[in-house]
Amino acid sequence: MPSTPDRSVPTRADYVHWRTITTRWRDDDAYGHLNNATYYEFFDTAVNAYLFEATGTNVRLLPQIGVVAETSCRYLREIGFPEPVEVGLVVDKVGTSSIVYRIGLFQGAGDEAAAEGRFVHVYVDNLDPARPVTPMPEAIREAVTKLLR
């Protein structure tokens, strides 16, 4: 039996770490709201900026790197230029070689998310990314464990 989709609207209380991203004129599409691809850029920026800051290292240079294995987005209401976007980050699961993130996008004073993304990193060998998955670096594990809720 298929599972029932989650219809709840995430709130600010659902997230652990925060970042503000400035929107740009070019982020809006022809209809005057944030282009769908830009939501994914915000997700990617929030996750990787956190990893750079929390580990104190350039994560591109670690022996194992996180590649995106899965993404999705629930669009709950429109957002766009010129207001900044507050981005909430939380980790749902830390495995041996993977991390499941949830990212909430908020614009304005409201408590409910305008969008929520799912972002999965799977760790591979930095020198040979075609090789099978590998355990994530301990610095990454320590950083993301702080985001578990």
Rank of each mutant, 00 (worst) to 15 (best):
K146P: 01
Y123D: 08
E53K: 09
T96A: 11
G88Q: 00
I79Q: 11
P63R: 13
P82D: 14
D14R: 13
V68E: 07
W25Q: 00
V16T: 14
T71L: 10
P135L: 02
V67D: 07
L89H: 01
T45L: 10
T55L: 04
P84N: 11
A13T: 12
D27C: 05
Q64K: 14
G88E: 09
L147K: 04
A54V: 05
Q107W: 09
T134Y: 01
C73D: 08
T134I: 06
R131E: 14
F43R: 08
G56N: 03
V144N: 02
R12L: 05
M1P: 13
G95A: 13
A49H: 09
D128I: 07
M136I: 09
P82Q: 11
G104S: 10
H17W: 12
I65A: 13
F42I: 14
G110D: 14
A49N: 09
D92R: 15
R149C: 03
V90M: 09
A115W: 03
S98V: 03
L89K: 01
D6M: 07
T11F: 08
I140C: 01
V87K: 00
R149P: 15
G110N: 06
L127I: 07
N58K: 06
R60W: 10
Y101K: 04
R60P: 00
E116S: 12
T22P: 03
F43A: 00
N35H: 11
P137S: 03
S3T: 14
D44S: 11
V90T: 15
A30H: 03
H33T: 01
A46E: 05
W18S: 02
T55H: 00
V94I: 12
Q107S: 02
D27F: 07
Y15M: 08
R24Q: 04
Y101V: 06
T145A: 15
L148H: 11
T11R: 13
G80W: 10
P5W: 11
Q107P: 08
F43G: 10
T71N: 09
Q107T: 07
E142R: 14
A109P: 07
I103V: 15
A49V: 14
T38G: 01
V16Q: 14
D128A: 15
N48L: 04
